[in-house]
Design a protein around this nucleic acid. Structure first.
Lengths: 360, 360
DNA sequence: CACCTTCCTTGGATCGATTCAAATTTTTGC
DNA sequence: GCAAAAATTTGAATCGATCCAAGGAAGGTG
């Protein structure tokens, strides 16, 4: 069966309906947008004309231009689009954003791109009223690109100190302390840290110098939290290996190899993400190292997967969905202000942490 | 001293730049859209003016209207927005869609709504060039709503026979046969089916009459496939209980209770979705029934979770991501035709199926 | 020097609606 | 039956760009 494509028929416009029904376009417009102010007889006539001509209803493109508001928010990242559907953290965040959008009837447009040029273009041309930025990687650049657009935006996971940027983040220092405190109280004294990035394109063991000059302050703060707390318990933090991963399997495993090659391997691992922690769980298990009997692992983030992995992961839970909800509301009810908001995290104790093996 | 906190808050338009730079708006436009045709000196002057006035670049709203194309595709469902991020099937599908969109630089807009009125409005007003419809539930209604919009659309998981609708689906009959054949060859002769919906708002044991008048032909076809194959092996399909679930925990468990209350409980369960199958796995395990020693289970869909559940699930894998990719391309390269496309499914054998217990 | 290209620039038309002050019609009140 | 009030309808202006036919200014040629 052939289709709707009849000849070179250009789409029907509101003006066509108006003419066909013998009314002005103002009235025709009212029939669709505020039918109650149009006399019934006229309304019916216009509707009949619309029906007869096969009018699809007012084109949102036209309305949009006039109204100025798109009623949609853009969620942007430098990762590929599939990141939104693959990454557990992103998924929970998106669920929170969705919820806030659902409540006000706003739409969500996903923005991303393979290379930076395309990303810039996609941000420039996205039909949205504002942006939520996932600054997992290349955060500052993403912020720069978005700023050009001169629309409201909120940065999430934004690891730098720029106070001209609206952001919602968590108390990373407190999170770090909670994790370290938990393990220290259990009796651990030999630690290793599997960290997120301190700077772009670096990986491997991290020097104090690198920590001091960290570009990603989120990473630095978590470490700071760990170390502050460990110091309280008399641990010499200078001796705690900090291995910078790329938050993926390969680099995390490399980190574990390095850490466990030591003469005095740790009894507790502080992982800066649940993803890293779960890779660690897997690696340890494959090595015949039992968690938590031989080694304890504490993650960070509180993604749903952490609750169902083997063993279930002790972690620092971020209010991920809440962050998403707040971010969406910040855009939806934008008041022109720039604010950095910090939410609290929570220690969730599960089965991956326990007392250290007794050094009998 | 033009600052951002100027008195009149009206955003800067291209025309303002043109005036400031002393050129026509046509030229100003060219500076941004086709800079190569503008003399360098002029180009620099215009750019400087833009910079000085704090121009954010051509507003996509204006461009859009003129261009007619949004360069984005809408993905719609009657489920809440979070469905896209929660449901494994949807996630893989979205990954496929994302991939195709990434490749052409198109955007994705998620469309959904709590109630039907809002959904209608959201579909009417979505800024997209076409729709991909997730017809998990309320498919016909969703199609109806979308048709009004007079834009290209493709229905996925569309369980009815309407030939005026473009759709991409799978060969449900073949899938059913593959599943049933696999179990029959292993030696099973006592079956039970946990099905998806045959019609709206029904649940419980299904009569042949209900099967004959099924609104959802996808469900019917899977069952048809099961039964055709089982008949070949001499199974009296009239005696195979078919329990209609709502593809959730509660109704699936109710189905299992019913089925296993029988004097001759099945040795094999044909589940019409992996979700149902995984609930079954859990239920059986809780009841001390070992899979596949006591009972075999075969799912349908091939979601990633099916590979990592306990035990890993034998299932009929749909090319989910491929469906998504094709759907997106159908919209992106729309040629005006209406086509129904059927893709093949594949049997993936894992640990949830084995020979029936020897009736010693 | 007149003429022809070539290369830029101009300004009106257009995309498809909404809005609003003014004009017109209908109701209401007496 | 008439004026004032209320209800509708009109049509021009606007939203913010892009497109394109036509006009103009350099530069090249015979």
């Amino acid at each position: 069966m052939a289709s709707l494509t009849e000849g070179s028929r250009r789409p029907i416009r509101l003006a066509d309906i108006a003419k066909a029904a013998g009314v002005s376009h103002g009235t025709a417009s009212n029939v669709f947008s505020r039918p109650e102010i149009v006399r019934e007889e006229v309304r019916e006539r216009v509707k009949a004309a619309a029906e007869a001509l096969g009018y699809a209803g007012p084109d949102p493109k036209g309305r949009l231009l006039r109204a100025g508001k798109v009623n949609a928010i853009g969620v942007a990242t430098t990762e590929p689009l599939s990141y939104f559907f693959d990454d557990p953290f992103a998924r929970v965040m998106m669920a929170g954003i969705s919820e806030a959008c659902d409540a006000t009837g706003a739409g969500i447009a996903l923005v991303s791109a393979g290379n930076e040029e395309k990303l810039a273009w996609n941000i420039q041309s996205a039909l949205v009223d504002g942006f939520i930025l996932f600054c997992i990687e290349g955060g500052p650049r993403l912020v720069e690109l978005t700023r050009e657009r001169k629309l409201p935006f909120v940065a999430l996971e934004f690891g730098s100190q720029d106070d001209t940027v609206s952001a919602i983040s968590i108390d990373n220092v407190a999170g770090g302390r909670l994790a370290a405190h938990h393990l220290a109280v259990l009796g651990h004294r030999r630690f290793a840290v599997l960290s997120l990035a301190f700077a772009d394109d670096s990986t491997g063991l991290v020097s104090p110098e690198q920590v001091r000059t960290a570009a990603y302050t989120g990473t630095r703060d978590r470490l700071l939290g760990y170390f502050e707390e460990l110091s309280q318990f008399g641990v010499d933090t200078a001796k705690v290996p900090v291995y910078e991963t790329e938050n993926d399997k390969a680099s995390t495993r490399a980190g574990l190899e390095t850490i466990f090659a030591s003469a005095e391997p740790p009894t507790a691992i502080l992982a800066m993400s649940d993803r890293i922690a779960m890779v660690a769980l897997e690696w340890l298990n494959a090595r015949g190292i039992t968690v938590p009997r031989d080694v304890s692992v504490v993650g960070f983030d509180g993604v749903p997967e952490a609750a169902i992995c083997e063993p279930p992961l002790t972690t620092i839970a971020q209010p991920i969905a809440e962050i998403g909800r707040r971010a969406a509301r910040r855009i939806l009810d934008f008041d022109g202000t720039v604010r950095r908001e910090t939410l609290d995290v929570e220690l969730v104790v599960r089965a991956s942490s326990g007392p250290p093996p007794s050094t009998g």
